[in-house]
Write a protein that binds this DNA or RNA. Structure first.
Lengths: 113, 113
DNA sequence: CTGTATCCAGCCGGATACTG
DNA sequence: CAGTATCCGGCTGGATACAG
């Protein structure tokens, strides 16, 4: 899963990581407090399990999320944004503002966990 | 080229338009003052001609760019950001800042036209 | 249950040929 | 030159089966 750098442009390099229809949504969910595989699956966009696995792996490789074993009885991971991941919130917020302003039928509230 | 809306989330809806590795780069180029097919092709990432045609069409359909016949002798179009497109600059700037801060080997300056 | 892997249709996109 | 179309290998992602 090695990333090929197309140019030194920070925008292009960011797109090499997050340039698809799903990655940012996972980060959005994490920013909203979701932490578990099941919670990401429950988001209204309906990400497929194999895609979610793939994106979690890529984000971990990129240092944007961490996965720590959940203390609870179920063998699962607790996913969290690293500082590098948290720093993406400004960008996501800018996307949200643009969408709200320019795309009809959008609304800010997402179903609670 | 109809867009299927996955959810009312403004982030998800924005991604339905710009969620790939090339679209944002075209908008970046437009924001930097590039206006012609040839200029987009000359960007260091090396977009293919068929992909560029496809993205220009999509962006036009989405109301993010306009294409007006160039007054010069060559039969070509002059592409420009609409207001809706210009409003994406805050988001792109946030991406650039994130990339500069968190991805090694990135630098802000792009070759001039 | 948590997550991974596999199947497979369809889209993406690089190379290239083509039209005007 | 400006832009489009076509070929075709490889990736994406939905459905589903699978493993712990």
């Amino acid at each position: 899963m090695e990333i090929h750098k197309r140019s030194p442009c920070p925008v292009a390099c960011a797109l090499d990581i997050i340039g698809d229809k799903w990655t940012i949504l996972v980060i959005r969910d994490l920013a909203l407090g979701r932490q578990y595989f099941k919670e990401f699956l429950a988001s209204p966009e309906g990400i497929a399990t194999n895609i979610l696995t793939n994106r979690l792996q890529r984000l971990k490789d990129a240092g944007i999320i961490s996965a720590l074993p959940d203390p609870g009885p179920i063998g699962r991971f607790q996913y969290r944004l690293t500082q590098k991941g948290q720093a993406m919130q400004a960008m996501i917020e800018a996307m949200a503002e643009w969408g709200l302003r320019y795309i009809e039928g959008t609304s800010k509230r997402l179903d609670p966990i």
